[in-house]
Amino acid sequence: MELRQLEYFVAVAEERSFTRAAERVHISQSGVSAQIRRLERELGAELFDRSARVATLTVAGKAALEHARAALAAAGAVGQAVGEVTDLIRGTLTVGMVLGCTITPLFDALAAFHEAHPGVELALLEDNSDRLVEGVRSGALDLALIGTANAVPEGLEALTIISERLVAAVPPGHPLAARRRVTLPDLADHPIVCMPQGTGLRAVFDEACAARGLRPVIALQAGAADTIADLAVRGLGVAMLSESMAARYRDRLTALPVEDVRAPALLALVWREGGGPAVRALLRHARRTFSAQPL
């Protein structure tokens, strides 16, 4: 008894036709018929009533059908299990991350994954969030750390890592420095230094301004938080950052919550639905490192 014979038997039973079954398994009808005859001889019973135009299961055929399906499913599971082990022994995992990424738990997760699966080659790509999302959707990237204004980009799975309010950061002596918080209209009177379009922080800021009919002056743009902070320290504009970003520069900048921006800026890992074994393994490490370490 061979697996292909069981495959052909199941195909005929489900299609109720030797012709359609042959089309389904991509061999000739005579080939399907011959293999079914061989299977019947091995089992010592006819599986189909061939007296009618439709291939109908006999009592023996009905008894065999579920067992045949189970055998095919078991064989498929064996192949999948071996394939997953093989993927984690050798292969490539391509990970994207936002420009200027300083999220050390991600690096810890990559290190733990590499230690557990040294045969898998890791490739890293930095880009803005919009292009990273498209890379994951197209399959060019297996997984990416992105900034976003939406919890789950359409068509992808996501694990939210950080959800924070937007803040304005200004140096001592700035007209806004004495305040405890600001609003978007307050910021409209000052030049802004922020992330470029295509990033999560910029999307949150732009969407909030558009909702209020405001058009702030974007004086300078940079992809790294350090650069934005350095420009703001030098008086070139109000820095738009997340809370955790701004906290790193508390010795040079005053962080002011933007009280009329309620939508959070999100940092999330995204991947295609299901993912592969390497993606799932990296996600397990990521969940452990992000839950164990403060960001």
Results as ranks from 00 to 15, higher is better:
residue 7 E to I: 05
residue 10 V to R: 09
residue 15 E to F: 04
residue 18 F to C: 02
residue 21 A to M: 07
residue 23 E to C: 00
residue 24 R to W: 11
residue 26 H to Y: 07
residue 28 S to A: 13
residue 28 S to H: 12
residue 31 G to V: 09
residue 34 A to G: 01
residue 34 A to Q: 12
residue 40 E to K: 08
residue 42 E to K: 14
residue 42 E to I: 04
residue 48 F to I: 11
residue 50 R to N: 09
residue 52 A to E: 13
residue 53 R to C: 00
residue 54 V to D: 11
residue 56 T to R: 15
residue 57 L to E: 06
residue 58 T to W: 03
residue 60 A to S: 15
residue 60 A to G: 04
residue 61 G to A: 12
residue 63 A to T: 13
residue 65 L to P: 07
residue 68 A to Y: 12
residue 70 A to T: 14
residue 70 A to K: 13
residue 78 V to Y: 07
residue 79 G to P: 03
residue 82 V to G: 00
residue 82 V to A: 06
residue 88 L to H: 07
residue 91 G to Y: 13
residue 91 G to P: 01
residue 92 T to F: 03
residue 94 T to D: 03
residue 102 T to P: 00
residue 112 A to R: 10
residue 114 H to E: 15
residue 115 E to V: 09
residue 115 E to D: 12
residue 117 H to M: 03
residue 119 G to N: 07
residue 120 V to M: 00
residue 120 V to Y: 01
residue 123 A to V: 14
residue 123 A to P: 00
residue 124 L to I: 14
residue 126 E to I: 01
residue 126 E to P: 04
residue 126 E to H: 07
residue 128 N to L: 03
residue 129 S to D: 06
residue 130 D to G: 07
residue 135 G to A: 04
residue 135 G to E: 06
residue 138 S to Y: 04
residue 143 L to K: 02
residue 144 A to K: 07
residue 147 G to Q: 07
residue 156 L to P: 09
residue 161 I to C: 06
residue 162 I to R: 13
residue 162 I to T: 10
residue 162 I to A: 08
residue 162 I to P: 00
residue 162 I to Y: 05
residue 163 S to H: 00
residue 166 L to E: 10
residue 168 A to N: 08
residue 169 A to N: 02
residue 170 V to P: 02
residue 170 V to N: 08
residue 175 P to W: 06
residue 177 A to M: 08
residue 178 A to F: 03
residue 180 R to Q: 15
residue 186 D to T: 10
residue 188 A to S: 15
residue 189 D to N: 10
residue 190 H to K: 02
residue 190 H to W: 15
residue 190 H to F: 15
residue 195 M to C: 09
residue 197 Q to I: 12
residue 200 G to Q: 01
residue 201 L to R: 04
residue 201 L to I: 13
residue 203 A to P: 02
residue 204 V to N: 01
residue 205 F to C: 03
residue 209 C to E: 11
residue 209 C to F: 05
residue 210 A to Y: 10
residue 210 A to T: 15
residue 211 A to H: 06
residue 211 A to V: 13
residue 211 A to I: 11
residue 214 L to K: 03
residue 214 L to N: 07
residue 215 R to F: 01
residue 217 V to D: 15
residue 218 I to F: 14
residue 225 A to P: 00
residue 228 I to R: 11
residue 229 A to I: 03
residue 229 A to Y: 09
residue 230 D to G: 10
residue 239 A to L: 07
residue 242 S to A: 10
residue 244 S to M: 01
residue 244 S to H: 08
residue 248 R to E: 12
residue 249 Y to D: 00
residue 252 R to P: 02
residue 257 P to A: 04
residue 262 R to E: 15
residue 262 R to L: 13
residue 264 P to K: 08
residue 264 P to S: 04
residue 265 A to H: 05
residue 267 L to G: 04
residue 268 A to R: 05
residue 275 G to L: 09
residue 276 G to F: 06
residue 277 P to S: 11
residue 279 V to M: 02
residue 279 V to Q: 11
residue 285 H to M: 05
residue 289 T to A: 14
residue 293 Q to P: 00
